[in-house]
């Protein structure tokens, strides 16, 4: 019934999915619908991406897909094939480097328990890449998919404002 001469299965023979992870090419052998969250944490041992709600609400698993924030718990492996994935481990672009947002979170105390922090930083970095000098309203909108149960968000907002200022200083 299915026309098998017209090749459609995403995964036949070798179930290998290639994509760029934190600037490096990777090839992962796993079922196509495996969650990116599980691929990152369990298959590639990058545990900076956190597991929270697992339904795209809390933002603890935020990663960048071609530079845009997505929830790794909602994203399946086959959906990232050939694309660029950036996790918290790669956000600064170097092993010991700190992204401006990471520096700002440290300086402003933008965290308490720290569990939401990787996701917050990924979302904030994506915002600042697109809008280097965001309004408070834009910061709140950009972080609306990231929940923090400790801070009350005050320190996080300060940190993102500070990161924007760091960016301006760097540019100036």
């Amino acid at each position: 019934m299915i026309d098998r001469t017209n090749p459609v299965p995403v995964q036949t023979g070798s179930p290998v999915f290639a994509f760029t992870l934190n600037g490096e090419p990777v090839a992962v052998t796993a079922p196509p619908s495996r969650r990116l969250l599980d691929v990152l944490r369990h298959d590639l041992l990058l545990t900076g991406t956190k597991i929270g709600c697992e339904i795209g609400r809390c933002g603890a698993c935020m990663v960048l897909l071609d530079g845009k924030p997505v929830n790794a718990c909602l994203t399946m492996l086959y959906q990232v094939e050939g694309r660029r994935v950036t996790t918290i481990e790669g956000i600064a672009g170097g092993k010991d480097a700190l992204h401006g947002v990471q520096r700002a979170f440290l300086e402003e105390g933008g965290y308490q328990c720290g569990y939401c922090t990787p996701g917050m930083i990924v979302s904030a970095a994506a915002l600042l890449a697109e809008r280097p000098d965001p309004t408070d309203e834009e910061i709140i909108e950009a972080l609306s998919g990231n929940l923090c149960r400790c801070t009350g968000y005050g320190g996080i907002l300060r940190a993102v404002r500070r990161a924007a200022a760091i960016g301006r200083e760097a540019d100036g």
Binding site: V8, P9, V10, Q11, T12, G13, S14, P15, P31, P32, S33, R34, M76, Y78
Partner: peptide
């Protein structure tokens, strides 16, 4: 076929 390695309902196969 390679698709069948996962139990149904756990990790669906994908056709494109």
């Amino acid at each position: 076929m390679a698709m069948k390695e996962q139990a149904p309902g756990r990790c669906p196969e994908v056709w494109r």
